[in-house]
Design a protein around this nucleic acid. Structure first.
Lengths: 351, 351
DNA sequence: CCAGAATGGTTAAGCGCTTTCCGAAAAGAT
DNA sequence: ATCTTTTCGGAAAGCGCTTAACCATTCTGG
């Protein structure tokens, strides 16, 4: 008799209906409250009844319906991660670390790609609010920061990843972009480069990296030529196009600082297509230290972000904010690291 | 008076409480049933009341709680995508297409990385069942297919992506791996290669590609040397290691078929580290046509999968299965395409 | 031996929605 | 003018769970 399955589990077509907490309670001859308590390890339940209930749970293969529990607890244990594009390696790598950390903390993640598109941003944000996610992580590249401020004011927990905003105070974790830009350009300058171009994205973090570029050139008495600075969006093609344009100049740059590795790869392709050799004729430095930077020939010199640490930190910060909404907001800046590989060298000598 | 916000929306600390359907109903002086009907466009509601209700919804900035509606409708409009690793470009690219298609169909996606690890697979699957996802997409690389069979028998919709299984009948969409392997090896053979190595993953799809290799060599009267075949898992390092080993032989292969682009990139690195030039000394062909294959020097010849079409097809199939569970299962095979770039050439001539 | 404190378990309300069933009113048919 | 439909909207049950409040034991110490 022990393993008999009772009638309510068999339907017309032989379809199995999922057991509910009521079924478990009935089988174990206790109330649903008791079952709930053993599942959640709350209240005080004696050892015998706990075992009894657990046995029934096993036998019926009962899985609590967390939709129902989310409704009562007003908490879904679900986070939303909003990024521009999961197929961009930078975001997929960091997403992976965020997923792992979230999962470790018992949370599940919706990952949504918004393509730098305000309409998609709005649609996803509304949808995810409807889905009652417990908090949002907004990654760099989010366009309509105003949207975020909106629900920030409604006390919905948000943290910003590699993205800052001055009009409202958010929790943010980021790499120190200024410092990263500094490291990159300083590397080029100390190799002897004077004519350094920049290909940067049109996002805030790139702007900070660009500030470092200007300041550093200034500190070294190197004149800044605006036509050496191109802003675009991250893609290999765009990097290539930008570099082609930069190499078109009468006096062409001997080095280029690409604000991320994708653009750097494009730059290398452009150089190659013009018959230039990297790093002999052109030094290239990237940013992010993505897997890409080790697959190029020559391998790419770049600036690494500690994305695993950043990922874990941002989940921690978000969870803290969910639990204690009134805590003061904080910014955490991680320090980047220069990774010297093969794509940078001294500038060619002209007599 | 029009924009007055009523008391229940202001709490002690100035915190706003989300309005519920009751608040809308009260404000609009209708029943909650009516509000529900205008939101879902069900039942029959006169134009004036519909407008009235919508106006209140606007004013209160009401967003339906889909957790509650999921509980009553027993449907979460959420899908689970289980892959080995989102930071692997192949999976992040295909995930992106799946996300887009799912979103277009009104569904949200949980993307979960299981690292070829049975324990993680089990944990995620159980969690997601608890979260009441409407269906699963299981991508290639899933280890414990037995787990899947289990809930397949519980009538939980599952479709397999680029993964087949013979013991149970699932809906599957995949590329025609055998044909893809055929295209790749045939390309090498017709360039004149006789000594062709293979680096393959330990997954079913790679096995099929390997079958094509064997059959094709057989058809061309080329003897198959088992020591030319290495099986490993996908990573640049593993590709490199495998290639190094293959190049250690007395008579070394003149070409290698890597079962995916990641391994191919590793193979190219190995060749380069031994001072060999691709394709002059070694032809390399990959599989998948990932973005990686255009960033290498030389660019990688590979076999492309129509991943966008596959992604769209698989969510269509899954949705169909969710709606009509009793339909017969089907396999959809997409045909791959050879993309010739720079990494393959005729074998070196020896006199 | 009994008041008071633990301990172990139950009852019942309620989370925010969907949906069936029903009744009233309006519209059409005779 | 009366009867039948149709249209519109409401009442209420219920989805599967959590939790506050409560009650019944058993345990403790004076």
């Amino acid at each position: 008799m022990v393993h008999m399955c009772f009638v309510s589990f068999i339907m017309g077509e032989g379809e199995r209906i999922k057991p509910t907490i009521y079924d478990v309670a009935k089988e174990a001859k206790v109330s649903i409250a008791t079952v709930s308590k053993v599942i959640n390890k709350t209240g005080s339940i004696s050892d015998p009844t706990r075992k009894k209930v657990n046995k029934v749970i096993q036998r019926l293969n009962y899985k609590p319906n967390v939709v129902a529990s989310a409704l009562t607890k007003k908490q879904t244990d679900t986070l939303a991660l909003i990024i521009p594009d999961i197929s961009n390696v930078f975001f997929s790598e960091i997403s992976r670390f965020i997923e792992d950390k979230a999962h470790e903390m018992g949370l599940t993640l919706f990952i949504c790609s918004t393509d730098y598109n305000e309409e998609k941003e709005r649609r996803y944000i509304e949808l995810l609010q409807s889905k009652q996610v417990d908090g949002f992580i907004i990654a760099s590249g989010f366009q309509n920061i105003h949207l975020v401020e909106e629900f920030h004011q409604n006390n919905i927990p948000v943290t910003l990843l590699a993205q800052d905003n001055l009009t409202e105070s958010f929790n943010v974790v980021s790499v120190d972009d200024y410092r990263g830009g500094f490291l990159a350009v300083n590397h080029l300058v100390s190799l002897g480069h004077q004519n350094i171009a920049v290909i940067a994205e049109r996002v805030h973090s790139s702007t900070l990296r660009l500030h470092a570029y200007r300041d550093l050139l200034g500190m070294n008495g190197i004149p800044i030529k605006e036509e050496n600075i191109i802003r675009t969006t991250a893609s290999i093609q765009n990097g290539e196009k930008a570099m082609l344009e930069l190499l078109q100049k009468e006096i062409r740059p001997t080095a280029v600082f690409a604000a991320n590795d994708i653009l750097a790869v494009g730059a290398m392709k452009a150089a190659r297509s013009l018959g230039l050799e990297v790093p002999r004729d052109l030094s290239v430095i990237g940013f992010d230290n993505m897997i890409l930077s080790t697959t190029t020939v020559p391998e790419l010199t770049t600036v690494a972000q500690p994305i695993k640490d950043m990922a874990e930190k941002i989940v921690d910060v978000l969870i803290r904010q969910i639990k204690m909404p009134d805590l003061a907001k904080e910014r955490t800046l991680f320090v980047p690291e220069l990774i010297v590989r093969e794509s940078t060298a001294q500038p060619p000598k002209f007599e």
